[in-house]
């Protein structure tokens, strides 16, 4: 009987096409649509802060160089991972990540909580030649990051596009994006004050690559790495509550 039925539908190309699309669509609808509507999917974290323009530029360099192919940013809810890397990752931590960089492979270690673990100078040396600081490392060198000036003139457009996909950047942030990127990497300049004003007092303002005279791609990438895992205190609080119980 089912065989007879199938002999009929395989004579009709349009019917077959519709059947394929119908059958194939169900799984996606059931699994993806509710993620947008069920409130518990993403935790509340009122202290969650936004990437500064410099950090966003650094994130884009992280993407450009393919860092995500070897480094995850997702600590799983497993004891050894929490003890190795820190509190397990919460959904809210990547709420403003367009796209997410959870990754799928750890050729190198997870970076979800790498922020503040190493000094800026360590990161700079590590990027220029990883084997200078970690002799056994198999990571490539990224020397050009220190040589390349960072493109900052279009950061306003980047922030505006981020706002279009739902990241709550204010108009002042969009208007001052270029200035803020410069200011965050040039602590002695007039532009520096505006950064903490707009992005919060905890924002790190310093010459990340060690050279305050110019803003390089290294500045941006290190600024980004140093903020990983520091956008909200929520995962740390959650873990200390769990430990206290």
């Amino acid at each position: 009987m089912p065989e007879f039925f199938h002999r009929k539908i395989e004579r009709n190309a349009i019917g077959f096409v519709l059947a394929i699309v119908g059958v194939a669509s169900i799984g996606g609808f059931v699994e993806i649509a509710p993620l947008f509507t069920i409130h518990q999917t993403v935790e509340d974290a009122p202290d969650m802060r936004l990437y500064t323009p410099l950090e966003l530029a650094g994130r884009n360099i992280y993407i450009r160089e393919g860092c995500y192919a070897c480094h995850s940013q997702m600590i799983r809810t497993l004891r050894d991972e929490v003890e190795r890397y820190g509190p397990y990752s919460l959904a809210v931590e990547s709420k403003y990540d367009h796209p997410m960089l959870w990754g799928s492979k750890r050729t190198g270690p997870d970076l979800a909580r790498i922020g503040d673990k190493y000094s800026d100078a360590w990161h700079v040396r590590h990027m220029i030649n990883p084997r200078d600081v970690v002799p056994e490392s198999i990571m490539p060198r990224y020397g050009w990051l220190a040589r390349n000036e960072l493109r900052v003139d279009d950061l306003g457009e980047h922030l505006a596009a981020q706002r279009d996909v739902g990241v709550p950047y204010t108009q002042a942030m969009v208007d001052n994006a270029t200035r803020d990127a410069y200011g965050q990497a040039t602590p002695d300049s007039d532009a520096a004050a505006g950064v903490s004003e707009r992005y919060g007092a905890a924002t790190q303002v310093r010459a990340f690559d060690g050279d305050p005279s110019r803003v390089t791609e290294m500045d941006a990438l290190v600024a980004y790495l140093q903020i990983l895992g520091r956008l909200t205190e929520a995962p740390y609080k959650q873990q200390s509550t769990a430990a206290g119980e």
Partner: peptide
């Protein structure tokens, strides 16, 4: 959403957990 018509770079519409699920779907 592309940064502009003259930029190769774009930002994905979805973020975080929804983006992860869509990507692996």
């Amino acid at each position: 959403v592309p940064v502009s018509w003259g930029h190769a770079k774009s930002y994905s519409l979805f973020s975080g957990v929804q983006d992860a699920m869509t990507e692996w779907w």
